[in-house]
Design a protein around this nucleic acid. Sequence first.
DNA 1: CGTTTCGTTGAAGAATATCAAAATGCGTGG
DNA 2: CCACGCATTTTGATATTCTTCAACGAAACG
Lengths: 244, 244
Amino acid sequence: MGTVFRCPRQNGRSELCPAKKLFSCLSPGQVAALGRERLARLFRPGEVLIHRDTPALAVLSIHSGRVKLIRSATNGDDVLVGLRGPGELLGVREVLSAVPYQVSAVTLEPSILCTVPRESFLNAVQECPELARRLLRQLAEETLSTEAQLVARAHLSVAARTARLLVALTDRRPVTPGLPAAIPISMGRDEMALRVGTTRESLSRALHQFAVRGAVKLEGGTIRVVVPSLLERFSQPELVYDGS
Amino acid sequence: MGTVFRCPRQNGRSELCPAKKLFSCLSPGQVAALGRERLARLFRPGEVLIHRDTPALAVLSIHSGRVKLIRSATNGDDVLVGLRGPGELLGVREVLSAVPYQVSAVTLEPSILCTVPRESFLNAVQECPELARRLLRQLAEETLSTEAQLVARAHLSVAARTARLLVALTDRRPVTPGLPAAIPISMGRDEMALRVGTTRESLSRALHQFAVRGAVKLEGGTIRVVVPSLLERFSQPELVYDGS
DNA sequence: CGTTTCGTTGAAGAATATCAAAATGCGTGG
DNA sequence: CCACGCATTTTGATATTCTTCAACGAAACG
């Protein structure tokens, strides 16, 4: 599970995974002390990086690729708890709290990660106040976003949450040169459903509603947002749209 | 809103609100620099300490009393996002993330809090690495617990979540001297419902189920847990109990 | 060209919210 | 001590939202 290889280097010196931003405050010596962080591994999509309920022995740093954090129930229905991308860390909270991993981490794409042993990480945090401060801020934002997620699930319909996802996905695309048409996205329905916190079927129906009302256009594999403003209306609470 | 008065003092020196644990690493000078933290205010139950969407100008430290963090929707249905008690801080995440308050904070009981201006707080974090580390750990635990909440809502029935609340409430009571009978609690049904993430009515029904099956006994105002083990069974997923 | 995976659609069923009303508890003043 | 009135809790009936099961069409792939 995971091919071992070296991270790309720059300037002849070992270059940290994009967690550079985070670790940039460490001295070369401290970086070296992080341990085997230079040894990265390549993972295929769908590989399990972290198993829930196992001891949190290390923090993983994402070099490239996207990873989903899930809690899988015994029966099999997963709950998405978060998504992480390049430059982000996995398992920080558990290592800091000294508890077993509370979630499982699974790659969504081919990904390259490196490992920082628990002790090394804690040492770095201890040694470098700046690192602590950066993590602090990151965690603060993380908590707020998880809370937002909780609230959304609590009082937004599946349709509204779906609309929100679409809005978020298009927002993130600065690539909106022409005013008229809008932006397509690509992602499996199952992944979308996971992100919205519903089933494949319910998601499909929600999209159908949007399409019927002319907010979006479903083009095999991609979703074209035709009337963003309309979509934002759907993302509001209250409003409910059902039936064929 | 809130009567101003001085915090109790010990040893002739001003004593910080129970956030002592957190701030104990600060020097007296640093403590003084925190600003007006010695000026505490008394709030009546139900007072709003923090209004969502207003600028996060300060961190509040809870000296005594309990506070609920909520997101109130336009229509009026609140979502409980967290509870805080003595020694805990309000608004840390927003201050650290430099965003407006994302939740409202409302007292559940008469409470005494003191205020640490945003800048003072950030300075303290900057100055004192130990403080940063403590906050880090606290935030890490906070995130994990919010996530757990999210997961619980996602795949546990109202009954299961209710059972969990009862279990948690009894667990927190070390006051279980005699083995035979069990522990009573007191709390409005509305507050319970809020914590479980459901309505007053649904909660009532869940309790009724437990009572019918002999797990608990409803005694006006208090709930006596008769068979804890049974209650724990109810708190498991899968199992569903409905009907009269 | 079958086979497999993915997406959509329909119909039935479950869980929970909502609305309305009865019941219970509780403090107050007679 | 009792009666009254208010607030909380419970209960019942109904509505709604969503999931689940099942089937079908279509694109993807060997």
